[in-house]
Design a protein around this nucleic acid. Structure first.
Length: 473
RNA sequence: GGCGCGAUAGCAAAGCGGUUAUGCCCCGGAUUGCAAAUCCGGUGAGGCCGGUUCGACUCCGGCUCGCGCCUCCA
């Protein structure tokens, strides 16, 4: 490397708060801080819940490619009225329910090739911090106690509503819910609420109770990341009220200090043109989909549209993602077969890679994926042209490095095509050997018979100059 | 009622004021004992109506349709 500074194209991200795409400038280039809202653990997550996880995992990887240290926190909400209800219905302890589904979540997400966040804070482990924050808000006149509840006074904050771009008047105009009697103002939200004897609760200055929904994220960010963070992510449906209220609590508790520099929100995953949601019941769980599709197929499907747009989820989408991955793995496999790995790929770096540039532009994954296809086509052409292995290795290195940034092409190509269980691998190899002999003997009838019978078992034979390989179909 | 998003070829989905997006599907060709894979080529587009411009899918205005938030939700 010369003294010339490397020309980095800047990362650009769409900031929901300003409703525009901005150049990402971290608070400190030495340590970038990102927080993403995680699941409430009372059942299996659906594929819509997986979208932000995959999207922000990709962002995490891109950030790590630029900055030396990135702290990524994703919480687990393990106290919530839905949890209390579900545990009661199933007649089990709350802790049993939440640990079961927190584990399931972690497993499901790992199948989608997501990296572990740097920190996974649990709400129930941060009660002292939450209570302290509520106390601070009460002391500073931003919150008040009423009938055992502590409420945030939204009229006490000048800029309340700026994140979600709405005024207090607008909100009340459209209010569809009855205003609870203990609220001074309809828009006030709960910081702390009383628990009855059968509910889980913690002692507080306002009696035994539990936190309101928005409080945990504020308290955990404060504790683990500080008063101000670079990026806060989540689904679009969290902008209001969740993120608006989080911001209100945190900034008021911190004397007006800016809470989040870049708010990022992914679009909805739809089914049949409608938002997928637990309340509508039109969801598919990740676990259920993993029975039929490799996690990487699901991941590619989720990345096939830019994260801010809506994405209509369908079996066709997954089938297309599967076909796409077959093509990409096919090129990798061919590259492996055609070149000896003794030719070391020169470190080309990512900066000049079109796919990387696309990712730096607010995670333009569809464009990046198209570049993956262009690279794989280049690989195939170079194999046909029988060019030197060096070019092939370069192309392969490019393809793999940028695919890794998207959490794709993480399998061994051979294993990808041969599927999970290789119990019958020896049997297949024996038949291939027999067919090879038949071909030498020009016994085409026997050769075709073997091909046909294996195909009936879901195994397809692929003849090439290098010999015969196979894959599951 | 308030606020916001979208409409691209059979399907999915991007960039871009003028030049092939890309993938899947479909058609033709090369290759192949057969098959697959691969390569080459092709069909096919920008909701509707105006405006700006030498030129608009791309900018501006209107309309239509669809979706979302304002309530738990990724």
């Amino acid at each position: 490397m010369t003294t010339t500074e490397v020309q980095h194209k800047p990362l650009r991200v769409y900031n929901s708060a300003t409703r525009s795409k901005e150049t990402f400038e971290p608070l400190s280039p030495d340590c970038v801080k990102m927080y993403v809202c995680g699941p409430t653990v009372y059942n299996l997550v659906h594929i819509g819940n997986a979208r932000p996880v995959v999207v922000f995992d990709t962002l995490f990887r891109v950030l790590q490619s630029i900055y030396p240290k990135v702290i990524y926190a994703r919480n687990i909400t393990d106290i919530d009225d839905k949890i209390i209800k579900a545990a009661a219905e199933q007649n089990i302890e709350i802790g049993e329910l939440t640990s079961r589904y927190a584990k399931a979540y972690s497993e499901d997400m790992s199948y989608l090739n997501t990296l572990e966040p740097s920190i996974t804070p649990y709400a129930t482990e941060h009660l002292p911090e939450m209570i302290a924050m509520v106390q601070k808000l009460v002391d500073q006149g931003h919150a008040y106690e009423s009938e055992g509840h502590v409420l945030f006074d939204v009229t006490s904050m000048e800029s309340y509503g700026t994140l979600s771009n709405r005024s207090l008047d607008d909100m009340l105009d459209g209010a569809r819910v009855e205003v609870a009697g203990y609220k001074r103002y309809a828009g006030d939200f709960v910081l702390w609420k009383p628990s009855n004897d059968s509910d889980p609760g913690w002692d507080s200055p306002w009696g035994r109770g539990r936190p309101g929904w928005h409080l945990e994220c504020s308290a955990m960010i404060e504790k683990h990341l500080g008063d101000t963070i670079d990026i806060h992510g989540g689904g679009r449906d969290l902008i209001f009220p969740h993120h608006e209220n989080e911001r209100a609590q945190s900034e008021c508790a911190h004397g007006g200090t800016h809470y989040v520099k870049y708010w990022m929100h992914n679009g909805y995953l739809n089914i049949g043109g409608e938002k997928m949601s637990k309340s509508l019941g039109n969801f598919r769980t990740v676990r259920e989909l993993l029975e039929s599709y490799d996690g990487e197929v699901i991941r590619l499907a989720l990345l096939s549209a830019q994260y801010r747009s809506e994405l209509d989820f369908s079996p066709e989408l997954l089938d297309q993602a599967k076909t796409s991955l077959d093509t990409l793995y096919g090129a990798l496999k061919a590259a492996n077969a055609a070149s000896d790995n003794s030719v070391a790929a020169e470190q080309t770096g990512l900066q000049n890679n079109v796919a990387y540039q696309a990712l730096l532009d607010d995670l333009n994954t569809p464009l990046a994926i198209s570049e993956l296809h262009r690279l794989s086509k280049e690989i195939n052409k170079n194999i046909s042209a029988d060019e030197s292995g060096e070019i092939l290795q370069q192309l392969k290195a490019q393809l793999q490095s940028v695919a890794t940034l998207m959490g794709l092409l993480q399998h061994d190509p051979e294993a990808w095509f041969k599927g999970g269980n290789n119990d019958d691998g020896a049997e297949i190899d024996a038949l291939i050997a027999e067919r090879q002999q038949a071909k030498v003997d020009k016994n085409w009838a026997r050769a075709d018979e073997i091909r046909k019978s294996l195909k009936e078992q879901g195994v397809e034979l692929l003849d090439s100059k290098e010999g015969t390989s196979w894959r599951r179909i």
